[in-house]
């Protein structure tokens, strides 16, 4: 039972990590590329870290919870770096592809 849970978590984590990087490599402009790594990769690594926590706890040397620390840290920092990157891209006026009419974006700074 535990092994199935572990296998599922590891596979889900790896697949999400892969999809996040695929989005980075594949999409058209910077702003859409930003979405893959911030969401999918963060969740993927989170799944892997929880799998690691479950694995080391099941080894019998007491509970191993310090992986939670990296998970929390990543979930707090990923949005911050995404926000800063988007801000930097807007500052540099990077081109946008496939945008709709409503795009009230001006340089404000």
């Amino acid at each position: 039972m535990l092994e199935y849970l572990l296998a599922f978590l590891i596979l889900a984590g790896a697949v999400f990590t892969f999809i996040g990087s695929l989005g980075l490599a594949r999409l058209r402009d910077f702003y859409t590329r930003l979405h893959g790594p911030t969401k999918a990769t963060t969740l993927g690594v989170g799944c892997l870290l929880i799998a690691s926590s479950v694995f080391f706890t099941s080894q019998g040397n007491g509970a191993s919870l310090h992986e939670v620390l990296i998970t929390l840290f990543l979930f707090i920092t990923a949005p911050v770096s995404a926000h800063l990157l988007a801000k930097a891209a807007l500052h540099l006026n990077l081109p946008r592809v496939g945008e709709q009419a409503e795009a009230p974006v001006r340089r404000q700074d």
Binding site: G13, A14, T41, A51, E67, A88, A89, L94
Partner: peptide, 20 residues
Amino acid sequence: PDRILALDTLYVNTIALLVL
């Protein structure tokens, strides 16, 4: 910014690799 984003993703992927 694309390159910085790639570096950012690279370190997160490295964490995944190390945990595995």
